[in-house]
Design a protein around this nucleic acid. Structure first.
Length: 426
RNA sequence: GGAGAGAUGGCUGAGUGGUCGAAAGCGCUCCCCUGCUAAGGGAGUAAGGGUUAAAAGCCCUUCGAGGGUUCGAAUCCCUCUCUCUCCGCCA
């Protein structure tokens, strides 16, 4: 959520910033609504004040034993007036809140202009596109050739966008997850966490998936439904909801491995083949909680931590700065890591690292006490994939393939694969 | 699933219809005292919002959330969420 005070004072500037995303913020309509709110609030508060003082004098009169009947008569109409005024105020405030929850975050000035992913800016590359002396296969051919990847079985159980893996391939994904968690906890100072995969709506409002993106989520039945998490970002970031942190408790870094569940509504026809886009996938997530003035530096650090994973796996990748039109709803700035996939002959997103600044913190009421002023202030939150395990598995399969369809095990994963060098058809 | 008890400020915890935004303690800030340290004494210390150019001041809201009763609700009633205890079941 954008600071409502900023919206009121600089609505035009906010509209200009959001226009870079292609988002139309009707500043005049908002300000007109806010004017309504203001006059209703002044009137409501005047009536409330009147009620409070009369209630107080009735209380004192009663304590003295005086007759309170005339006092009661004097405030006869006040109740209904107040009720009318209060409910009108509530209506307007609800409308304002709806607008505010719908507004994406302000973009950082360093975000490049652009409409969609074609306008993203390459920041750096690492490694060279893997070269082969034979015709490369994609991960589907490789996995099915090994007899370890079965989309037919999965669709029989759950339909499209699910997969079944068996044997060494299933283990390879587990190895990737273990490896990533170990690097982040042992080398990058993250605290490993285990979190719920089913969450209440308010947690998703806190991180920004609700109320706007309900159709992207899976939801259980019942009066108080659960939502399946679309990313570990949701439960992990909500660790600081409604907290007041002391200065020495920041920064904090958390990592978690969770499955992620996404309905992929609206992505019909995209990546229908293979395991690139699934309803259920595994991911290792990184989350930072930092003081306000540290978040931009933290974004660089966080991105670097995700990059280390790809470097250790010796997978070629590039870092792109997302352009204004491609930055996600709650983020102020985002770097994507794109890994080289020989099977598609292009780079594909494997990690997305974002600085949310105070956008999520405001929704969650996550604050720290400023040691200089003694006053509470919103913290900043960041998160990034470190990295998506399903897509990392694809990248390993395709980049480490042999001519006979077997797959070499990356050096750093061998300890997690009982020392196996190669995955071959059994 | 059944029965019960709870949710109060940064934290612990009093408060069961009126002058209660809320005792006390802890923590924190400032000051004093003590030749170090430990300890002691005093004062201050919730958040969000409105009014304002800004501040001061004044006002409003907030005692888990939402409704209700009342002139008046932390306190009474209803619903929900969460926590704890006991029973049952269970990986």
């Amino acid at each position: 959520m954008i600071d409502p005070k900023l919206l009121r004072q600089s609505a035009a500037d906010v509209a200009t910033n959001l226009a870079r995303r292609g988002y139309v913020f009707d500043a005049d309509a908002y300000l007109a609504l806010d004017e309504q709110r203001k006059s209703l609030q002044v009137e409501t508060q005047r009536l409330q004040s009147e009620r409070n003082s009369s209630a107080k004098s009735i209380g004192m009169a009663k304590a003295k034993g005086d007759d309170i009947a005339p006092l009661l008569a004097a405030v006869e109409d006040l109740g209904t007036q107040l009720a009318t005024s209060e409910s009108a105020l509530q209506d307007v405030q609800a409308k304002l809140t709806d607008i505010e929850l719908d507004l994406p975050n302000l973009l950082d000035d360093s975000v490049p202009d652009g409409k969609d992913e074609n306008d993203n800016v390459e920041v750096r590359t690492w490694g060279n596109a893997t070269s082969f002396s034979f015709d490369v296969r994609d991960h589907i051919d490789l996995g099915e050739g090994l007899g370890m990847l079965d989309f037919d079985a999965a669709s029989g159980i759950s339909g499209s966008r699910f997969l079944v893996m068996t044997g060494a391939l299933a283990r390879l994904q587990r190895a990737l997850i273990q490896f990533m968690l170990d690097v982040h906890t042992e080398e990058h100072g993250y605290k490993e966490t285990y979190v719920p995969y089913l969450v209440h709506a308010h947690a998703l409002v806190g991180t920004g998936q609700l109320p706007k993106f309900e159709e992207d989520l899976f939801k259980t039945d019942g009066d108080t439904p659960f939502y399946l998490i679309p990313t570990a970002e949701v439960p992990v970031t909500n660790l600081v909801r409604d907290t007041m942190l002391e200065a020495d408790q920041l920064p904090q870094r958390y990592t978690a491995h969770t499955p992620c569940f996404r309905s992929e509504a609206g992505s019909y026809g995209r990546d229908t083949r293979g395991m690139v886009r699934q309803h259920q996938f595994e991911k290792v997530e990184l989350v930072h909680f930092v003081a306000a003035d540290e978040s931009m530096a933290a974004l660089e650090t966080l991105t670097g931590h995700a990059e280390v994973i790809l470097q250790k796996l010796e997978l070629p990748y590039r870092v792109v700065a997302l352009c204004a039109g491609d930055v996600g709803f709650g983020a102020a700035k985002t770097y994507d890591l794109e890994v080289w996939l020989p099977g598609q002959n292009k780079y594909r997103e494997i990690s997305s690292c974002s600085n949310y600044n105070d956008f999520q913190a405001r929704r969650m009421r996550a604050r720290r006490r400023n040691p200089d002023t003694g006053k509470p202030e919103l913290i900043h939150t960041l998160n990034g994939s470190g990295v998506a395990a399903g897509r990392a598995l694809i990248a390993v399969m395709e980049n480490y393939q042999n001519e006979d369809g077997s797959i070499r095990v990356p050096a750093v994963l061998k300890p997690y694969m009982a020392g196996a060098e190669v995955i071959a058809r059994a």
